[in-house]
Design a protein around this nucleic acid. Structure first.
Length: 301
DNA sequence: AAGAAGCGCAACCGCAGCAAG
DNA sequence: CCTTGCTGCGGTTGCGCTTCT
């Protein structure tokens, strides 16, 4: 008696999103905040299933997302976290707030897996055999004996810690004028691809144009809702409790990366803090976890 | 110049977890 | 306690773009 898939409805559109759809979705979320995805297609008139809307938002339209060009630091973190947590991309993504789980997953599957495979191939030539899925036979055995629950625990601790950080930084979020949030330019340069709306900057540009073209939509929106990226971000921060989750990282990532430069050095501070935080977990009670030999990451860089 | 092969990424699908009734 | 519905997650696919032959 399985539940029918949400996308089985006749008339539900699939495939790539159009700019118009993006704008409708963004302006709706801008007004109501993310969440209650079930109501989104109904309330917006989008011929998309709720799942598709949520995915589009979280992986693509959400402000603050950084796309492409993973730097060395991020790579290192992903490899380390993957070895630690396995393919729990959402958990890994929580350590890299600017990246989506989908992005990390894709990057792992297309780049890092190959990189590791190549590396392992090299090392096998030296008589050092390892398996691809993260651990050498020895360390794998060890990791199993440590128990998967420990990895879960590690993530749970992190989640709790993050929640605490969010709670503590709530005031900051609402009062602090983070340069990242208020800058007229986006926190990160737009992707090099020719994608029509690969960033919220583009969406912000599209919004006024579209609103001018579309008097129907114009009448249903207040002017302050659709004008600029700035107002978008500000509204988002104040609009709903849920929205704060989306931007919690600003609290410990308030040092902005400079525009137009995605090198590791520019993002050094937040990433280093994250890593430090991650490592402190190990020191302060997760010794076993962090003590696990992550041999396949050694000497990677 | 044209076709084939490879690559990267957005999006879909199915399942699991959780909460409400 | 069971059923139902919603959300989130991870695996996978399909398509467009780039590179190779």
């Amino acid at each position: 008696m399985g539940r029918p898939p949400c996308c089985d409805k006749i008339g539900v559109k699939k495939g790539p999103w159009t700019p118009e759809e993006d704008i409708i979705l963004v302006s709706y979320i801008q007004e109501h905040g993310p969440g209650n995805w079930r109501a989104v297609p109904t309330n917006t008139g989008l011929l998309r299933c709720s799942k598709s809307c949520r995915l589009r938002w979280t992986n693509y339209l959400r402000p603050g997302i950084r796309r492409g060009n993973f730097n060395e630091q991020e790579e290192k973190m992903i490899i380390h976290l993957q070895a630690l947590l396995g393919n729990r991309w959402a958990a890994i993504a929580s350590y890299l707030p600017q990246r989506t789980d989908n992005d990390i997953k894709n990057y792992w599957n297309t780049h890092l897996k190959k990189k590791l495979r190549k590396l392992q191939g090299d090392e096998q030539d030296d008589g050092n055999s390892k398996t691809l899925d993260g651990f050498s036979p020895k360390s794998h055995q060890q990791s199993i004996s440590k128990g998967q629950w420990e990895r879960r625990l590690q993530t749970d601790i992190h989640t709790a810690k993050q929640a605490l950080c969010e709670a503590l930084s709530l005031d900051k979020l609402t009062t602090l004028t983070s340069p990242m949030l208020l800058s007229s330019s986006p926190p990160f340069p737009p992707p090099q691809s020719s994608t029509y709306a690969a960033s919220t900057e583009n969406i912000a540009k599209l919004l006024p144009v579209w609103m001018n073209k579309n008097p129907l939509a114009k009448s249903s929106q207040t002017s302050s809702e659709v004008t600029t990226q700035n107002s978008f971000n500000n509204n988002r921060l104040e609009s709903s409790p849920n929205s704060i989750d989306q931007y919690s990282y600003f609290s410990f990532n308030s040092s902005p990366c400079s525009d137009g430069d995605e090198t590791a050095t520019n993002c050094q501070v937040p990433l280093t803090l994250l890593e430090k935080w991650l490592l402190e977990d190990g020191v302060q009670g997760q010794d076993d976890l962090m003590g696990m030999p992550l041999v396949e990451t050694d000497g990677l860089f």
